[in-house]
């Protein structure tokens, strides 16, 4: 019964979030702040993770394709497909659910328990719209850029293995990442990332907005936001993969 109550409350909250803002100017100001906070501030972690994962994937792909029957470009091909299909969309979003999701849930949760949200409501502000909508729109618009950057940096990480070690040659790697390229896989990854961005921001906002009590409850809300975002991301990944591929 509790889960049905949560689902109902989530949709009621979304009904309040996706309304016309009281002031478009204030919305865009908040939107730009969130673009900076959720998008640009996520860049360092995206770059660091992607470059290492790209390199690690290349090494693992090489180890697992040590077979004279397989062409030498297979390593690059496998690295590219893994980055495009799963890592730079799904795995990256699971990681960002930890960073962005916990940030949103704790920020909104703290505003709730310190009565800042009540203060907005008393002023006649639609607090759900003012606080949550810019976060959702900002992360949805930034996520495709983060995915593209992650793919590019991941491929650079793999190239680094070729350039700085003797595990694979750069020529074989570059041939592999260009071989039989299907542009739809990029589209598929971007569509998934937009859906996941929506899940992360709305679910985290829901848990933060409904936090009650004190610091302990904000911590619980933050944990619930990350755990449930991850579960929902994986579940929707399964459905989207079945539908889109």
């Amino acid at each position: 019964m509790k889960i049905i109550q949560h689902i109902g409350e989530y949709f009621i909250l979304m009904g309040r979030v996706f309304r016309r803002p009281d002031r478009w100017g204030m919305f865009f100001r908040q939107y730009m702040k969130e673009v900076e906070k959720q998008g640009l501030q996520s860049l360092p972690i995206v770059i660091i993770i992607s470059i290492f994962i790209g390199a690690i994937l290349t090494i693992q792909a090489k180890i697992n394709t040590e077979n004279p029957l397989l062409p030498t470009y297979t390593t690059g091909l496998l690295t590219r497909e893994t980055l495009l299909l799963e890592f730079s969309s799904t795995i990256l979003c699971l990681i960002l659910a930890g960073k962005v999701g916990s940030n949103i849930a704790s920020e909104i949760g703290t505003m709730r328990i310190t009565e800042q949200i009540d203060a907005m409501e008393i002023m006649g502000v639609n607090s759900a719209n003012y606080l949550i909508a810019p976060k959702v729109v900002a992360f949805i618009t930034m996520m495709p850029f983060l995915v593209i950057i992650s793919i590019a940096i991941g491929l650079v990480g793999g190239w680094g293995v070729g350039a700085f070690t003797d595990i694979i040659t750069v020529a074989d790697y570059v041939t592999g990442i260009q071989y039989a390229f299907n542009p739809y896989y990029v589209t598929y990854g971007l569509i998934k990332s937009v859906v996941f961005a929506f899940i992360i921001t709305t679910l985290s906002s829901y848990y933060g907005y409904n936090a009650r009590g004190g610091a302990l409850e904000v911590g619980i809300a933050s944990t619930n936001a990350v755990v449930n975002s991850n579960i929902l991301i994986l579940f929707s990944d399964l459905i989207l993969t079945k539908v889109l591929l």
Binding site: E115, Q116, D118, A119, I122, M123, G124
Partner: peptide, 14 residues
């Protein structure tokens, strides 16, 4: 509520 002002116990400043 636009005709209402409220002072909260913990100030509730943003």
């Amino acid at each position: 509520r636009r005709e209402v002002g409220m002072l909260f116990q913990g100030s509730a400043l943003f």
